[in-house]
């Protein structure tokens, strides 16, 4: 005796659900007409992947901009007692050195850096 025998005896297995007339006959052609072209879906996936791959570089660009901002702000504060001309010189030298170091560490060439900074600004 199967455990579901009581339900089977009382109700059986008849399917109580129906479908609209010719539903299955027409389903395949309707489904195929809604199916996206393979090229489209591949292209979509590629765009998505490229964006995802660039994302870490946006972060690096944002980090550089942030670092430059902090350094400039910091030097202005600490150098407030010095003469104005000296402060500007130190500020520029320190910022340039810091940027060069960060660019070297992130292994970006000048063109890529320009592209990433432009993209990051545009977002």
């Amino acid at each position: 005796m199967k455990e579901e025998d009581e339900i089977l005896k009382r109700i059986g297995k008849r399917n109580p659900f129906k479908v609209p007339d010719n539903y299955f006959e027409n389903f395949t052609s309707e489904m195929m007409s809604k199916l996206p072209e393979k090229e489209e879906s591949v292209l979509k996936m590629k765009t998505h992947t490229l964006k995802m791959r660039l994302r870490p570089l946006y972060y690096v660009a944002a980090l550089i901009i942030g670092a430059v901002f902090i350094i400039q702000f910091g030097f202005r504060k600490t150098g407030s007692t010095e003469k104005e001309g000296v402060i500007t010189k130190t500020e520029v030298t320190a910022s340039d050195r810091m940027i060069d170091e960060l660019v070297d560490r992130s292994m970006l060439d000048d063109y890529s850096l320009y592209v990433y900074l432009s993209d990051a600004d545009g977002e």
Partner: peptide, 30 residues
């Protein structure tokens, strides 16, 4: 690539009914 879409059409033809009933019994509404 040349026969992929045709093959998929065959898949839809062959399996749509059994998949439909599997889904319908779960969600009840057509």
């Amino acid at each position: 690539e040349n026969t992929q879409r045709k093959a998929f059409e065959q898949i839809v033809k062959q399996y749509s009914q059994q998949l439909y009933w599997q889904i319908r019994r779960m969600v009840f509404s057509h």
